[in-house]
Every structure is written in C-alpha cells, then in structure tokens.
Design a protein around this nucleic acid. Sequence first.
DNA 1: AAGACGATCCTG
DNA 2: AGGATCGTCTTT
Length: 173
Amino acid sequence: MKPSGKRLSADFFRRDTLTVARELLGKNLIRVFSSGETRSYRITETEAYCGQDDLACHASKGLTKRTQVMFGPGGRIYVYLIYGQYWLLNFVTGEAGDGSAVLIRGLQGFDGPGRLGRELQLDRSFYGEELALSSRLWLEDAVPVSDVKASPRVGIHYAGEPWVSMPWRLKLP
DNA sequence: AAGACGATCCTG
DNA sequence: AGGATCGTCTTT
C-alpha cells in the first residue's frame, strides 16, 4: 500500500520549530514493537514548543534532568509522563541550546497525545533516543500536505499571554 | 520530608 | 464534573 519512505535525518529536525511542526503533518511514524511487529502511522496533529522564552514549553523551567534532552540538538525523542499515566511523545527541534520540541498530538486513528503514547507502547526508555538511528521508532518521508489548520495550544493556561494564544497547534483538515 | 501540579483520558 | 496516579519541581 504505502511505498517505503525515506527515513528523515537529524537535519530535518534541526530547523525552525514551527517549520518542523508543520512539515511533520502527513509524515509516517514507524514503530517496531518488542513483539517484532512493525506498524506505520500518519501524523495528523502537532504542537510547537518554541524554546526557553515560550512559557508553555518545559524548557522555560531551565535545564533540569527532565528537560535536558530538549537542550540538546534536534532529532532526539523527548518523552515524559503526564498525570502519572500517559507518556507523551515529542521530537526535539532546532540546534543545541534552543530547548525546543514538537509534541505529537495525533496519529491517524489515534487522536490525543496520551492515547497515541499508549498505542505506541512508549515508556521512559525512549527518552533521548535518536530518530535517525533507532531500530524501533523513526519517521519516514511522505507526500507533502498543502492545507494545515492552526489554533491555540491545549492545556497550557498556566503560561498566560501571549503564549496561550499563539496558534501553534497544527492539524490536518 | 512534604506538598502541589500537570502539554490527559475515562467514567458517571 | 471528578477521579486516577506518580514523577518532577518547589517549598519547608
């Protein structure tokens, strides 16, 4: 059905966060489960978290054990546990020191960051994994999408203005 | 050492 | 509307 795409390199992620968040839409996420089964998922929704100045971004708390991967170069996985239950999937973007990342909020058939984390069977061991090198989780190129809808990010009221209003939640129509 | 609080989801 | 559930960060 889907042609075998080309794996996205680290350079794809080492760019402007909003650009990466937009271009991730429509790309295929490949997951090789511990059972050996491989599945492909189309990315349908993302959110951009734009560095230390963005008060909605975890990196705005500074360099901690939890955020350190965000301060490394783009192309690595940032996962964290939310509400003691769900592992949320992010990809670090930009250059080392930026502290930026893109949250994957939706895959085709699996809407919601918590739900897709459960589907992908994520856990703490994915923290810091290199997408260009991993044998169990990576991204593959796909036909570019044309239409993208932007709206404010979800669940970040604590960040206040202007961050709560920035249209950095991106989704396919 | 103890408390507060989530980039969420499900149930009632 | 409210509970689950626990790691991280903040405050004693």
